[in-house]
Write a protein that binds this DNA or RNA. Sequence first.
DNA 1: GCCAACGTTGGC
DNA 2: GCCAACGTTGGC
Length: 153
Amino acid sequence: MTKKYWLMKSEPDEFSIYDLKEVQVEAWNGVRNYQARNFMRDEMKIGDEVLFYHSNTKPPGIAGLMTVASEAYPDKFQFDKKSKYFDPKSSTENPRWFLVDVKFKKIFKNFIPLEILKGDNKLRDMKVLQKGSRLSITPVTKAEFEHIVKLGS
DNA sequence: GCCAACGTTGGC
DNA sequence: GCCAACGTTGGC
């Protein structure tokens, strides 16, 4: 099975790459979008490489790297009535939302702002850069990934 | 804080 | 199964 490459967004006010560095491994909580869930549940494998994107901040952009650290399993917050991620339509017998654990890899020496990503011809097909793209998890090609690692180092 | 773009919900 | 209404995302 060949390694896959991903980009995952998080608002740093909620959870940043610096938080991930502290804890090293964390469950990627709170995804409530079916496409993003399907990527985690059906396509991610332990060891896949992930770009950590900081969204809704100034400036937005790619902050560093992490790896997929577990198989997909049900997000526990969907069963927790007190959580904002509670989903009354989900059940333990038939969970609706899945997630994976992610493991810290590195913080980029050079943070890569969205503006730079947009202006880079090699990255023009990246899903996260398409107009109106809101998907919080998107696949990245090997070439895009390697180019971004170069930009960040 | 605004608002365009998008996803989801639910009445019909 | 359509689609209007609503809620959310996320750059600006």
